[in-house]
Protein backbone atom coordinates (compact mmCIF):
# COMPACT_ATOMS: atom_id res chain seq x y z
CA UNK A 1 0.00 0.00 0.00
CA UNK A 2 2.87 2.37 0.83
CA UNK A 3 4.48 1.77 -2.56
CA UNK A 4 1.14 2.37 -4.28
CA UNK A 5 0.72 5.70 -2.48
CA UNK A 6 4.28 6.81 -3.24
CA UNK A 7 3.86 5.88 -6.92
CA UNK A 8 0.66 7.92 -6.99
CA UNK A 9 2.24 10.97 -5.38
CA UNK A 10 5.17 10.84 -7.79
CA UNK A 11 2.87 10.78 -10.82
CA UNK A 12 0.55 13.29 -9.18
CA UNK A 13 3.08 16.11 -8.77
CA UNK A 14 4.10 15.85 -12.40
CA UNK A 15 0.50 15.75 -13.54
CA UNK A 16 -0.16 18.83 -11.43
CA UNK A 17 2.58 20.65 -13.30
CA UNK A 18 1.02 19.72 -16.63
CA UNK A 19 -2.50 20.59 -15.49
CA UNK A 20 -1.40 24.00 -14.18
CA UNK A 21 -0.43 25.17 -17.67
CA UNK A 22 -3.62 23.88 -19.20
CA UNK A 23 -5.85 25.49 -16.62
CA UNK A 24 -3.93 28.78 -16.89
CA UNK A 25 -4.65 29.05 -20.62
CA UNK A 26 -8.28 28.08 -20.07
CA UNK A 27 -8.78 30.65 -17.32
CA UNK A 28 -7.07 33.46 -19.23
CA UNK A 29 -8.48 32.95 -22.69
CA UNK A 30 -11.19 30.32 -22.41
CA UNK A 31 -9.13 28.19 -24.79
CA UNK A 32 -9.04 24.40 -24.46
CA UNK A 33 -5.49 23.77 -25.58
CA UNK A 34 -5.55 20.28 -27.06
CA UNK A 35 -1.87 20.71 -27.98
CA UNK A 36 -0.78 20.94 -24.34
CA UNK A 37 0.54 17.35 -24.32
CA UNK A 38 2.56 18.13 -27.43
CA UNK A 39 4.22 21.05 -25.61
CA UNK A 40 5.23 18.59 -22.90
CA UNK A 41 6.69 16.29 -25.56
CA UNK A 42 8.67 19.18 -27.08
CA UNK A 43 10.15 19.95 -23.65
CA UNK A 44 11.26 16.34 -23.45
CA UNK A 45 12.95 16.47 -26.85
CA UNK A 46 14.78 19.71 -26.04
CA UNK A 47 16.16 18.05 -22.91
CA UNK A 48 17.07 14.95 -24.88
CA UNK A 49 19.26 16.99 -27.23
CA UNK A 50 20.74 19.39 -24.67
CA UNK A 51 21.40 16.89 -21.87
CA UNK A 52 21.46 13.55 -23.69
CA UNK A 53 23.14 14.41 -27.01
CA UNK A 54 25.17 17.56 -26.27
CA UNK A 55 26.04 16.38 -22.76
CA UNK A 56 25.40 19.71 -21.07
CA UNK A 57 24.33 19.74 -17.39
CA UNK A 58 20.74 18.78 -16.61
CA UNK A 59 20.05 22.24 -15.16
CA UNK A 60 21.02 23.80 -18.50
CA UNK A 61 18.66 21.40 -20.25
CA UNK A 62 15.83 22.36 -17.88
CA UNK A 63 16.46 26.05 -18.59
CA UNK A 64 16.68 25.41 -22.33
CA UNK A 65 13.40 23.49 -22.30
CA UNK A 66 11.69 26.21 -20.24
CA UNK A 67 12.92 29.03 -22.49
CA UNK A 68 12.23 27.18 -25.75
CA UNK A 69 8.71 26.33 -24.68
CA UNK A 70 8.08 29.88 -23.47
CA UNK A 71 8.99 31.10 -26.96
CA UNK A 72 6.75 28.46 -28.54
CA UNK A 73 3.93 29.57 -26.22
CA UNK A 74 4.46 33.18 -27.32
CA UNK A 75 4.36 32.14 -30.97
CA UNK A 76 1.18 30.11 -30.36
CA UNK A 77 -0.48 33.24 -29.05
CA UNK A 78 0.87 35.72 -31.63
CA UNK A 79 0.58 33.56 -34.75
CA UNK A 80 -2.50 31.50 -34.05
CA UNK A 81 -4.80 32.10 -31.12
CA UNK A 82 -4.79 35.88 -30.89
CA UNK A 83 -5.78 36.18 -34.54
CA UNK A 84 -8.56 33.62 -34.30
CA UNK A 85 -9.89 35.02 -31.02
CA UNK A 86 -10.00 38.50 -32.59
CA UNK A 87 -12.11 37.27 -35.50
CA UNK A 88 -14.31 34.62 -33.95
CA UNK A 89 -16.19 34.52 -30.68
CA UNK A 90 -17.12 30.88 -31.16
CA UNK A 91 -15.40 28.38 -28.84
CA UNK A 92 -15.31 25.84 -31.67
CA UNK A 93 -12.85 28.01 -33.62
CA UNK A 94 -10.17 27.86 -30.95
CA UNK A 95 -10.91 24.19 -30.27
CA UNK A 96 -10.38 23.38 -33.94
CA UNK A 97 -7.26 25.52 -34.00
CA UNK A 98 -5.87 23.76 -30.93
CA UNK A 99 -6.61 20.35 -32.46
CA UNK A 100 -4.92 21.47 -35.68
CA UNK A 101 -1.81 22.65 -33.85
CA UNK A 102 -1.67 19.34 -31.96
CA UNK A 103 -1.73 17.40 -35.24
CA UNK A 104 0.80 19.77 -36.77
CA UNK A 105 3.19 19.32 -33.86
CA UNK A 106 2.73 15.53 -33.92
CA UNK A 107 3.71 15.46 -37.60
CA UNK A 108 6.66 17.81 -37.09
CA UNK A 109 7.92 15.66 -34.21
CA UNK A 110 7.93 12.55 -36.41
CA UNK A 111 9.75 14.45 -39.18
CA UNK A 112 12.38 16.09 -36.98
CA UNK A 113 12.79 13.70 -34.05
CA UNK A 114 11.94 10.35 -35.68
CA UNK A 115 9.89 7.42 -34.50
CA UNK A 116 12.12 6.16 -31.70
CA UNK A 117 11.51 6.56 -28.02
CA UNK A 118 14.27 8.81 -26.64
CA UNK A 119 15.79 8.82 -23.23
CA UNK A 120 18.69 10.34 -21.35
CA UNK A 121 21.03 9.02 -18.65
CA UNK A 122 19.61 9.09 -15.14
CA UNK A 123 20.43 12.36 -13.38
CA UNK A 124 20.94 10.58 -10.05
CA UNK A 125 21.25 6.82 -9.84
CA UNK A 126 20.38 4.62 -6.91
CA UNK A 127 17.22 3.64 -5.11
CA UNK A 128 16.02 4.83 -1.69
CA UNK A 129 14.65 1.93 0.33
CA UNK A 130 12.03 3.46 2.58
CA UNK A 131 11.02 0.11 4.08
CA UNK A 132 11.24 -3.55 3.07
CA UNK A 133 8.51 -3.15 0.46
CA UNK A 134 8.75 0.53 -0.45
CA UNK A 135 11.29 1.76 -3.00
CA UNK A 136 11.85 5.22 -4.43
CA UNK A 137 14.64 5.85 -6.95
CA UNK A 138 16.64 9.02 -6.23
CA UNK A 139 15.88 10.27 -9.75
CA UNK A 140 12.21 10.33 -8.78
CA UNK A 141 12.97 12.05 -5.49
CA UNK A 142 14.74 14.77 -7.50
CA UNK A 143 11.76 15.14 -9.83
CA UNK A 144 9.33 15.35 -6.92
CA UNK A 145 11.47 18.07 -5.29
CA UNK A 146 11.83 20.12 -8.50
CA UNK A 147 8.13 19.72 -9.35
CA UNK A 148 7.01 20.84 -5.90
CA UNK A 149 9.47 23.76 -6.04
CA UNK A 150 8.13 24.87 -9.44
CA UNK A 151 4.53 24.58 -8.23
CA UNK A 152 5.29 26.60 -5.07
CA UNK A 153 7.17 29.21 -7.13
CA UNK A 154 4.23 29.43 -9.55
CA UNK A 155 1.72 29.92 -6.72
CA UNK A 156 3.88 32.62 -5.08
CA UNK A 157 4.40 34.30 -8.44
CA UNK A 158 0.66 34.39 -9.16
CA UNK A 159 -0.12 35.63 -5.66
CA UNK A 160 2.52 38.23 -4.92
CA UNK A 161 3.84 39.70 -8.16
CA UNK A 162 2.26 42.46 -10.21
CA UNK A 163 2.27 40.22 -13.27
CA UNK A 164 0.66 37.36 -11.37
CA UNK A 165 -2.05 39.65 -10.01
CA UNK A 166 -2.68 40.93 -13.54
CA UNK A 167 -3.08 37.37 -14.80
CA UNK A 168 -5.46 36.52 -11.97
CA UNK A 169 -7.47 39.64 -12.67
CA UNK A 170 -7.73 38.63 -16.34
CA UNK A 171 -8.80 35.14 -15.34
CA UNK A 172 -11.57 36.54 -13.14
CA UNK A 173 -12.94 39.10 -15.61
CA UNK A 174 -11.05 39.97 -18.77
CA UNK A 175 -13.11 43.11 -19.55
CA UNK A 176 -12.91 44.48 -16.02
CA UNK A 177 -9.16 43.88 -15.97
CA UNK A 178 -8.85 45.76 -19.26
CA UNK A 179 -10.83 48.70 -17.80
CA UNK A 180 -8.53 48.68 -14.77
CA UNK A 181 -5.53 49.21 -17.04
CA UNK A 182 -4.27 45.64 -17.45
CA UNK A 183 -2.68 45.23 -20.88
CA UNK A 184 -4.59 42.07 -21.75
CA UNK A 185 -2.72 41.35 -24.99
CA UNK A 186 0.63 41.47 -23.26
CA UNK A 187 -0.62 39.40 -20.34
CA UNK A 188 -2.22 36.86 -22.66
CA UNK A 189 1.11 36.48 -24.35
CA UNK A 190 2.81 36.06 -21.00
CA UNK A 191 0.17 33.56 -19.88
CA UNK A 192 0.79 31.43 -22.98
CA UNK A 193 4.54 31.56 -22.40
CA UNK A 194 4.15 30.59 -18.75
CA UNK A 195 1.73 27.74 -19.51
CA UNK A 196 3.92 26.32 -22.27
CA UNK A 197 6.98 26.66 -20.02
CA UNK A 198 5.29 24.61 -17.27
CA UNK A 199 4.46 21.85 -19.75
CA UNK A 200 8.00 22.02 -21.13
CA UNK A 201 9.55 21.75 -17.66
CA UNK A 202 7.37 18.74 -16.87
CA UNK A 203 8.48 17.11 -20.13
CA UNK A 204 12.10 18.01 -19.42
CA UNK A 205 12.02 16.34 -16.03
CA UNK A 206 10.15 13.29 -17.20
CA UNK A 207 12.54 12.51 -20.05
CA UNK A 208 15.16 11.54 -17.48
CA UNK A 209 12.84 8.90 -16.02
CA UNK A 210 10.34 7.87 -18.68
CA UNK A 211 11.82 9.12 -21.94
CA UNK A 212 9.78 10.72 -24.67
CA UNK A 213 8.47 9.86 -28.10
CA UNK A 214 6.67 11.71 -30.85
CA UNK A 215 3.30 10.13 -30.17
CA UNK A 216 2.91 10.77 -26.43
CA UNK A 217 1.23 14.16 -26.72
CA UNK A 218 -2.40 13.26 -27.35
CA UNK A 219 -2.68 10.82 -24.45
CA UNK A 220 -1.07 13.36 -22.11
CA UNK A 221 -3.50 16.03 -23.27
CA UNK A 222 -6.38 13.69 -22.44
CA UNK A 223 -4.92 13.07 -18.99
CA UNK A 224 -4.45 16.81 -18.47
CA UNK A 225 -8.11 17.39 -19.29
CA UNK A 226 -9.16 14.69 -16.83
CA UNK A 227 -7.14 16.44 -14.10
CA UNK A 228 -8.62 19.82 -14.93
CA UNK A 229 -12.13 18.39 -14.95
CA UNK A 230 -11.61 16.75 -11.56
CA UNK A 231 -10.15 19.85 -9.96
CA UNK A 232 -12.30 22.41 -11.74
CA UNK A 233 -11.41 24.24 -14.94
CA UNK A 234 -9.57 27.53 -14.57
CA UNK A 235 -8.65 27.15 -10.90
CA UNK A 236 -4.98 26.77 -9.96
CA UNK A 237 -5.57 24.84 -6.74
CA UNK A 238 -8.05 22.68 -8.65
CA UNK A 239 -5.39 21.74 -11.20
CA UNK A 240 -2.97 20.73 -8.43
CA UNK A 241 -5.60 18.64 -6.64
CA UNK A 242 -6.77 17.14 -9.96
CA UNK A 243 -3.20 16.16 -10.87
CA UNK A 244 -2.52 14.57 -7.50
CA UNK A 245 -5.85 12.73 -7.54
CA UNK A 246 -5.30 11.31 -11.03
CA UNK A 247 -1.81 10.13 -10.07
CA UNK A 248 -3.11 8.37 -6.97
CA UNK A 249 -6.15 6.93 -8.78
CA UNK A 250 -3.91 5.51 -11.52
CA UNK A 251 -1.59 3.97 -9.00
CA UNK A 252 -4.38 2.37 -6.97
CA UNK A 253 -6.11 1.27 -10.19
CA UNK A 254 -2.93 -0.45 -11.45
CA UNK A 255 -2.61 -2.36 -8.20
CA UNK A 256 -6.20 -3.26 -7.44
CA UNK A 257 -7.93 -3.19 -10.85
CA UNK A 258 -5.16 -4.28 -13.22
CA UNK A 259 -6.19 -3.77 -16.82
CA UNK A 260 -9.31 -1.84 -15.91
CA UNK A 261 -7.94 1.20 -14.11
CA UNK A 262 -8.91 3.67 -16.82
CA UNK A 263 -12.31 2.09 -17.26
CA UNK A 264 -12.84 2.64 -13.53
CA UNK A 265 -11.40 6.17 -13.66
CA UNK A 266 -13.64 7.19 -16.56
CA UNK A 267 -16.76 5.70 -14.96
CA UNK A 268 -15.93 7.49 -11.71
CA UNK A 269 -15.32 10.71 -13.64
CA UNK A 270 -18.70 10.50 -15.41
CA UNK A 271 -20.51 9.93 -12.11
CA UNK A 272 -18.50 12.69 -10.44
CA UNK A 273 -19.24 15.21 -13.23
CA UNK A 274 -22.93 14.30 -13.17
CA UNK A 275 -23.00 15.21 -9.47
CA UNK A 276 -20.51 18.10 -9.59
CA UNK A 277 -20.13 19.32 -13.18
CA UNK A 278 -17.80 22.18 -12.26
CA UNK A 279 -15.27 19.90 -10.57
CA UNK A 280 -14.04 20.09 -6.99
CA UNK A 281 -13.10 23.76 -6.95
CA UNK A 282 -14.43 25.07 -10.28
CA UNK A 283 -16.27 28.33 -10.68
CA UNK A 284 -20.04 28.49 -11.10
Amino acid sequence: MGQVLINGLYSGVQYALIALGLTLIFSLMNVMNFAHGQLYVLGGFVTYYVYGVLGLPFVVALLAAGITLAVVGLLFDILFFRKVLARSARDESTMLLATGTALLLDSLFIIFFGEKHRGVPTVISGVMRISNNIFLPYSRVLIIIISVAVIVFFILFMKYTRCGRGLRAMAQDREAAKLMGVNVDRYSMFGWALAAMLAGLAGAMLVSVSGVNSGLGTWLSIKAFIMVMIGGAGVISGAIIGGLMLGILESFGSSFLPGNQYLAIFIALIIFLAIRPRGLLGRQ
Binding site: Q3, Y10, L206, V209
Partner: peptide
Protein backbone atom coordinates in the same frame (compact mmCIF):
# COMPACT_ATOMS: atom_id res chain seq x y z
CA UNK B 1 -0.50 -13.24 -15.44
CA UNK B 2 -3.11 -10.52 -15.02
CA UNK B 3 -1.08 -7.32 -14.73
CA UNK B 4 -1.34 -4.84 -17.57
CA UNK B 5 -0.71 -1.19 -18.38
CA UNK B 6 -2.39 1.31 -20.66
CA UNK B 7 -1.15 2.70 -23.96
CA UNK B 8 0.73 5.94 -23.33
CA UNK B 9 1.82 4.97 -19.82
CA UNK B 10 5.05 6.74 -18.85
CA UNK B 11 5.38 5.53 -15.27
CA UNK B 12 5.63 1.76 -14.99
CA UNK B 13 6.43 1.64 -11.28
CA UNK B 14 2.80 0.93 -10.29
CA UNK B 15 2.32 -2.07 -12.57
CA UNK B 16 5.82 -3.40 -11.96
CA UNK B 17 5.47 -3.08 -8.18
CA UNK B 18 2.73 -5.67 -8.39
CA UNK B 19 4.52 -8.03 -10.81
CA UNK B 20 7.90 -7.88 -9.09
CA UNK B 21 6.34 -8.69 -5.74
Amino acid sequence: ASDSYETGTTDFFPVMSSVVS
